[in-house]
Design a protein around this nucleic acid. Structure first.
Length: 423
RNA sequence: GGAGAGAUGGCAGAGUGGUCGAAUGCGUCGGUCUUGAAAACCGAAGAGCCGCAAGGUUCCGGGGGUUCGAAUCCCUCUCUCUCCGCCA
């Protein structure tokens, strides 16, 4: 959430940012309501001062047993009280209207984020590894998954619905191996603390990280209990410190595996076949809490940690920076990592690494102390480290052999009981 | 799910309807003392909002009520603890 004071004092900047994002918000109405609010507060507080003084007076009069005078004073204060009630009600309403608008205003992209009209304007920053060449026609992963019985899409659709794959046998084990491997890497080499959070969160948490209220349609919802299956571990991890003042002298770095649940309404179709786009998928996530001055630097470290996963798996990838039109709602700056999948002949997004600045921290009221001991909002960052299904697609399609088997990357073999090939 | 108890500052823990933003202890920070440290002693320190500022205002789990005035009285919700039931 943006600071209302910032919006008030930098209205043109905010409007430009909205324009660059192709987003809309009623900033003028917001400022009008904000002004009304402050005016009402000033009147109410003036009256409260009067009331406080008068009430003390009444106490004194009562003490001196001047009951007649006390009664007259009581009557006067009662009238003030009535006006205060009216104003309080006004302020409450205005607060709510302000909140409704502000919660739906996206973050300001940092100044260096490239301005663009859509995802075709995302610059490629770097590429790692080499394009794999084959002396046969590489197959798409769904063929391989079917032949090797790694995933049962039909039965997943039967027991739940499309987009809910059933991993079977070596396919299931590969999921577990990847999760363990990535968590081990982040905890052992990147300084993370492993967390196993709840897989459903309440509405306050969803609001804290920015999923609610604007993106309610994207999430599953359990109505009786007002809970939401997590769309990403970012939600429980970031909200761990909601409404707290924490010490981030050393960055707090948390990692967690969770399944992720997304409705992905309207996403069905041939371009999303197989494991490319799912309603439920596994992901290892990294979340950082840092002092404001550190977040830009930490963002570069974080993207490196995500890249490291792919380097160790020996996968060809590229890093792109999202332009203003493509950057996420809560993000100030965002890198995506894409893996090349030779079977489907596409770059697949497997990680999104974002710096949120104080946007989430202000929503979730996550603070730290500055050098003077005063509370200030922390900066939050997160990155996928990484999402499983498309990673599995890339591993399977890049490592497939002419005989139909799939060579398992060296680093995963200890996690696969020493197995060298899926066959 | 049933019964009971509770929720106060970083933590522990007092609190009479007005003098309570709140005793006290611990912890934290600064100082004195010391070669240095410990101990002792002295001192400092909550958060939000409004305001250029001075200052004002609100906050004792959340919401509502009574009252001129509520941490204190009433209602309600949430959460925690204890016991019972159920259960991986």
């Amino acid at each position: 959430m943006l600071d209302i004071k910032f919006i008030r004092e930098n209205t043109d900047l905010v409007k430009t940012a909205l324009l660059n994002r192709n987003a809309e918000a009623n900033v003028d109405e917001l400022l009008e309501i904000d002004l009304q609010r402050r005016t009402s507060i000033q009147e109410a507080e003036g009256l409260k001062t009067e009331r406080n003084v008068s009430s003390k007076n009444i106490g004194a009069l009562m003490g001196q047993k001047k009951f007649t005078e006390a009664e007259a004073a009581k009557e006067a204060v009662r009238k003030i009280g009535e006006r205060i009630s009216v104003l309080n009600e006004q302020i409450r309403e205005l607060d709510e209207r302000i909140r409704d608008i502000v919660l739906c205003i996206p973050n300001m992209p940092v100044a260096t984020v490239p301005i663009g009209k859509d995802e075709t304007d995302n610059p490629v920053l770097r590429e790692w590894g080499e394009l794999k060449t084959f002396d046969f026609e590489p197959k798409p992963h769904w063929d391989i998954c079917e032949k090797l019985k790694l995933v049962d899409f039909e039965r997943g659709a039967k027991i739940t619905g499309s987009g809910f794959p059933v991993y079977t046998g070596q396919g299931a084990k590969l999921q577990r191996a990847l999760i363990s491997c990535m968590l081990d890497l982040h905890t052992a080499d990147h300084g993370y603390t492993e967390i196993e959070p709840p897989f459903v969160c309440n509405a306050d948490s969803m609001t804290g990280t920015g999923q609610l209220p604007k993106f309610a349609e994207d999430m599953y919802h359990i109505p009786g209990d007002e809970l939401y299956p997590v769309p990403t571990a970012e939600v429980p991890l970031t909200n761990l410190y909601r409404e707290e003042i924490i010490d981030v002298k050393n960055p707090i770095k948390l990692t967690a595996y969770t399944p992720c649940f997304r409705r992905e309404a309207g996403a069905a179709g041939s371009t999303n076949r197989g494991l490319l786009r799912l309603h439920q998928f596994d992901k290892v996530e990294m979340v950082n809490f840092v002092e404001p001055e550190q977040s830009a630097e930490q963002h570069e470290i974080l993207i490196g940690e995500a890249e490291n996963v792919l380097q160790l798996l020996g996968l060809h990838y590229r890093v792109i920076e999202l332009c203003t039109a493509d950057i996420g709602f809560s993000a100030a700056k965002c890198y995506d990592i894409e893996l090349w999948a030779p079977g489907v002949e596409r770059w697949l997004e497997v990680s999104s690494v974002s710096n949120f600045g104080d946007y989430q921290a202000r929503r979730a009221r996550i603070r730290c102390r500055d050098e003077n001991g005063k509370p200030q909002f922390v900066h939050t960052l997160n990155g996928s480290g990484v999402a499983l299904p498309r990673l599995v697609v890339a591993i399977i399609e890049n490592n497939q052999n002419a005989d139909g088997s799939v060579t398992i990357p060296q680093i995963l073999r200890p996690y696969m009981g020493g197995l060298e090939k899926l066959a």
